[in-house]
Design a protein around this nucleic acid. Structure first.
Lengths: 221, 221
DNA sequence: CGACCATTTGATATGGATCAAGCGATGTGG
DNA sequence: CCACATCGCTTGATCCATATCAAATGGTCG
């Protein structure tokens, strides 16, 4: 499944982040690391050692359910931070959707920095609440009809990737389906219906244009 | 729907929490308030002013979807803290499931305390991560079969209420259904099947006994 | 060009929703 | 104290949205 063996973060700091990383943020510590397409960043049950910020590319976190199906818990785009865990073991795995660069931060260093600098602690709290919000939104999404789930997903991605009405999907139909709790066939059919209704255009399967946001928003509620 | 008008938290501190509230925790600030069954604690779009800790009783947070269906985002039992929000408006509403007592904390006071005391900041972060974990677990739950969702719910409630194999449900079948994204009929049928399979007993509809945790865990994965 | 993989499209099956009725506990008024 | 209304829950019959199975299409890379 994976195209290469898991890359482990370095213990030394060979790749420091750019010198322009602002003081008073978590970006001042940590190392930049590249991951190949489909590379595992961490696995379920791995010890939690790092927090990650996406610099380039995109990442998915997921879990394989007992019946073999895969559920994706979140997609992370440039700027997003992931890897928050309650215990000392990961409950999800994380994989690079495409070639990506991550800022890898030792959890202990982050915690130490937060203890010293309350504004850093505040940032971490805010990021975690934002992540909680996203997870709650996902719950609201996955209980709706297939059509509504797909529309909700498109609007969410559009908002987060800040590219106007253009969407360049980094992920496959299978990834979308596993995020929404649907099958690829159903996702595909929903997109075709939206295209037939002139609400979106599909120049290529990974490039979507939102042609009628108003109508999409109505479907989304 | 609601049995009484919304009760607003007091601006003065008429009801201080017990003097035994430990220093260095958020419990040292705030006021104790009672809420009646089905009373609204806050509504969607209300300004965020407080954090809440459940002292007695139980609470649900939920959202009414466009089609009129209600989705419950979480149940909160004694000890749990709720009311974390990313923005300054609530994205969910909160209601008392049964008569309950809440410790009501001004968000600004909590933030100020966290800025002064890094261990408080750490507690808040940990609670938020725990809440994130729960939301992620709910996503994993609502994409499974009806039977699995109900089993997952029973095991979750059992773990959180720490009452051994006895479960005294504070919430109705409708609440459970709205949490799991099912109908009451489907929840009822799933429970009947579990009873017929001798995995649970149902002395009364709100009192469930887990008779075969091993079998239940197998269904849950 | 041809092999391969991702996506779309088509035909059928099924799990859970919906519609409808029955049941049991609780409460209320005569 | 008992008829009877009410409410929450369970059970039954049918329907429909989405899964599943199957095949066609299209896009990419050697």
């Amino acid at each position: 499944m994976l195209t290469q063996a898991t890359i482990r973060p370095p213990t030394s700091r060979q790749n420091l982040p750019s010198a322009s990383a602002p003081a008073g943020t978590i970006d001042m510590i940590g190392a930049v690391m590249p991951f190949a397409r489909n590379a595992e960043i961490y696995g379920e049950n791995d010890r939690v050692e790092y927090l990650y910020r996406v610099l380039k590319g995109s990442v998915r976190t997921c879990k394989v359910l007992r019946d073999g199906r895969r559920q994706i818990a979140g997609f992370y785009l440039p700027g997003d931070v992931f890897g928050f865990e309650a215990g000392d073991r990961h409950t999800l795995s994380a994989e690079a959707i495409a070639e990506c660069q991550l800022l890898v931060l030792r959890r202990a260093s982050v915690a130490a920095l937060a203890a010293r600098d309350s504004s850093v602690a505040g940032q971490l709290w805010a990021m975690t609440i934002a992540e909680l919000q996203r997870a709650q939104d996902q719950v609201m999404l996955v209980v709706r009809t297939a059509q509504e789930r797909v529309v909700g997903f498109l609007l969410e991605i559009s908002k987060r990737s800040r590219d106007g009405d253009q969407i360049n999907l980094p992920m496959s139909r299978q990834d979308i389906a596993d995020y929404l709790g649907l099958t690829i066939e159903t996702v595909s059919r929903a997109l075709t219906q939206l295209k037939d209704a002139k609400m979106i255009a599909l120049p290529t399967s990974r490039h979507i244009v939102l042609r009628d946001r108003e109508a999409l928003r109505r479907l989304n509620s």
